[in-house]
Nucleic acid binder design. Structure first.
Length: 485
RNA sequence: GGCUCCAUGGUCAAGCGGUUAAGACGUCGCCCUCUCAAGGCGAAAUCAGGGGUUCGAUUCCCCUUGGAGCUGCCA
C-alpha cells in the first residue's frame, strides 16, 4: 500500500512551490490507490507562525487535496504534529547512542562558534564539528546527561567511505562521508531536528514514498545512514525540482510572490491554478494540457517529472485562467463576477447577466473586471481624438454628423432592447449611406468615453438604458461642437 | 571554498542514437469584425561551448561555462 506524506512546517502561507509538492504527493498516492497524509513539522518552535497550521489545512482543502490522515482528520498513525510526538524521538536517539551511530554532545553554541572561527581563520575550508564529545568516556557522558546538563545528540558520521541512496528521479546519489557533518539529531530543548524527525516519522507512519524538494537531495545520503543504523528499510525517494521566480531566484512569499490564497483572492480560479501548477515541472508526455484534478490523478506518472527547475510564468497562468473562465457556465460566471461588478458599479442598476455575456470570454483574471466596466457607472473624461479611427473612416466631423442623426432616432425608440437599438442604428447607416462603423464607432465613443470596450455600441447602449445613453450622446455632441467652433 | 544536482526557443516543454527538433504560452503578421476580446490562418524563435564514443549525436561519456541546493541546536 502506497503511503505518501506532505510535511510542511507552519511558518506562513502555503506557497506555490509547496502547493505543487503537495499536489504531486497527492497525485502519486491517489494514482496508486494509496493514502495521502498530512504531517506538521513544527519542531522549530521559534519559526512557527501563529495560525499557519490552520492556513495549511484551509489551503489544502481549497485546493481539493484532501488528506486521508492528518492532525485534523485523525488516523491510526497519529499524532500528526511533531511537537505532539516529542517524547517518542529520544528513545530512538538513545538506541543510536547505544550502537555508536550517535553520541551526546555538551559543547555550547558559544564554544562551537569560537572553534569554528578559529578553524576557518586557519584554513579556508568549511568547519565541521570536530567530534570533540565523541571521545568523552561513556560513563562521564552518561553522568552528565543524567545530571541534567544541557546537551544535544549528534549523528556519528563515519570518517571514511561514502553514503548514498537511490532517487526515483535523480538516480544514484552519493556523497563522501568526510564531507558530511555530525548533525544534531536531538536539540537541547529535547525536540528533534528535521534530520532526525523525518526519518523516525516516515518510518513510524509507514511512508513508502517520500516526495520533497531538492533542497534535501544532498542531505539524503546522510539520512540513509540513519536508516541503516536502525536496520530499517528506506522509503522510495522522489526529489522535486524547485519552482523559480526567475532564472536564479526561488519563488518565495517573502519577496512578494503570490501564495495560493493570494491568487484565489485576485480572481484566479482554483482549477486553473492547479492545472497550471501541475504542468510546471511535470508533463503528461502527450499534447493534452487541460486536466481536472481527477484527470491529473489518472495521468500522473513519475516519468513525466522534470529534473530542472521551472520558472513560474504568470502569462501562462493568466491564459489558463482565461480559458477556465470562458468555459464555465454563464450562471457560474455571473455568480463569480458579481462582487467584482459591484466594486465598480455599486448602486447603479445594471443587467449583470447581460453584462456577463459580454465579459464572460473577456475576463482573464477577476480583479481586472472593475476597471473594464467602470465606464458604465460613470462616463470617463476623454479626448475627442478617439473619435478618429482610420479603419472605421471616422473623424470628429463624421462623428458629429452620425451622433446628430442617431440621437433623435434612438430617442424615439419605444423600447431599448439591444436588438432594437442595433436595428435602428444599422438602418440609420444604410439610409444615410454610411458605413456601419461610421455610426457605431461615434456612438460607442460618446456613450463609453473609451477607445475600446467590452461589447459594442448597441450592447453598451442597452446596458446604460435609453436616458443615460441619450444624455451621454448629448455630451458627445456638445464636445464635438465645441471643438469645431 | 567543499559537496550534491541541473542544462532543448523569452517561458512551460516533447524527444530517450538516424526527426523537416512536437505542442502550448507569449511575440509579430494577415483574415473576420460596430471597438476590444474570442475565433481562423501564418511567421519568427531552441539543442550553452569544447572534446570524445559511434557509420551517425539534442540523445551516451568527459571537461569548461552557467545556474540551483546543501554546508544551522531551519526545515
Amino acid at each position: 500500500m502506497v503511503r505518501t506524506r506532505f510535511a510542511p512546517s507552519p511558518t506562513g502561507y502555503l506557497h506555490l512551490g509547496g502547493l505543487r509538492t503537495a499536489l504531486y504527493t497527492y497525485l502519486f498516492a491517489k494514482k496508486n490507490g494509496g493514502r495521502f497524509i498530512l504531517r506538521i513539522e513544527d519542531t522549530d518552535q521559534e519559526r512557527e507562525v501563529e495560525g499557519a497550521v490552520e492556513l495549511i489545512y484551509k489551503s489544502l482543502r481549497q485546493a481539493g487535496l484532501l488528506y486521508d490522515e492528518g492532525p485534523d482528520v485523525g488516523g491510526e498513525y497519529g499524532p500528526y504534529i511533531q511537537t505532539q510526538r516529542k517524547d517518542l524521538y529520544l528513545p530512538y536517539a538513545l538506541r543510536l547512542v547505544e550502537s555508536g551511530a550517535a553520541y551526546p554532545c555538551f559543547c555550547t553554541k558559544e564554544q562551537l562558534a569560537q572553534r569554528r572561527e578559529a578553524a576557518e581563520a586557519e584554513m579556508q575550508g568549511q568547519w565541521k564539528y570536530d567530534k570533540h564529545c565523541l571521545h568523552l568516556p561513556k560513563e562521564e557522558a552518561l553522568r552528565r546527561m543524567q545530571s541534567g546538563e544541557p546537551c544535544v545528540i549528534r549523528q556519528n558520521v563515519p570518517l571514511t567511505g561514502t553514503a548514498s541512496f537511490e532517487d526515483a528521479l535523480y538516480g544514484h546519489v552519493e556523497a563522501p562521508c568526510d564531507t558530511l557533518d555530525d548533525n544534531v539529531l536531538i536539540k537541547a530543548d529535547g525536540l528533534p531536528t528535521y534530520n532526525f524527525a523525518n526519518v523516525i516519522d516516515d518510518h513510524l507512519m509507514g511512508i513508502t514514498h517520500v516526495m520533497r524538494g531538492t533542497e534535501y537531495l544532498s542531505s539524503t545520503p546522510k539520512y540513509n545512514l540513519l536508516y541503516q543504523a536502525f536496520g530499517w528499510e528506506t522509503p522510495t525517494y522522489i526529489h522535486l525540482s524547485p519552482v523559480m521566480k526567475d532564472a536564479s531566484r526561488k519563488l518565495s512569499k517573502r519577496y512578494g510572490d503570490p501564495s495560493f490564497e493570494d491568487l484565489l483572492a485576485q480572481g484566479y480560479v482554483r482549477d486553473a491554478i492547479i492545472n497550471f501548477i501541475a504542468l510546471l515541472g511535470w508533463s503528461p508526455g502527450d499534447e493534452r494540457e487541460f486536466f481536472s484534478l481527477p484527470e491529473l490523478v489518472e495521468a500522473f506518472d513519475l516519468k513525466g517529472l522534470s529534473k530542472a527547475p521551472a520558472i513560474f510564468n504568470t502569462e501562462k497562468l493568466v491564459w489558463f485562467n482565461h480559458e477556465y473562465i470562458s468555459r464555465m457556465p454563464l450562471d457560474q460566471y455571473v455568480e463569480m463576477a458579481t462582487p467584482w461588478f459591484d466594486k465598480a458599479l455599486a448602486g447603479k442598476p445594471m443587467d449583470y447577466r447581460f453584462l456577463s455575456t459580454l465579459m464572460h470570454t473577456r475576463t482573464e483574471v477577476f480583479d481586472r473586471v472593475p476597471d473594464m466596466v467602470r465606464f458604465l457607472a460613470e462616463l470617463p473624461e476623454y479626448d475627442i481624438d478617439i473619435y478618429t479611427h482610420k479603419k472605421m473612416k471616422t473623424d470628429p466631423e463624421v462623428s458629429l454628423n452620425a451622433l446628430r442623426l442617431a440621437r433623435p432616432a434612438l430617442a424615439q425608440l419605444p423600447d431599448f432592447a439591444e436588438e432594437t437599438v442595433k436595428e435602428c442604428l444599422m438602418d440609420l447607416a444604410a439610409q444615410n449611406e454610411l458605413k456601419t462603423g461610421q455610426v457605431m464607432w461615434p456612438v460607442r465613443i460618446a456613450i463609453s468615453g473609451q477607445a475600446s470596450t467590452p461589447g459594442g455600441a448597441t450592447e453598451i447602449a442597452y446596458l446604460l438604458g435609453q436616458a443615460e445613453t441619450l444624455r451621454r450622446m448629448d455630451l458627445g455632441i456638445q464636445k464635438l461642437e465645441a471643438a469645431q467652433a
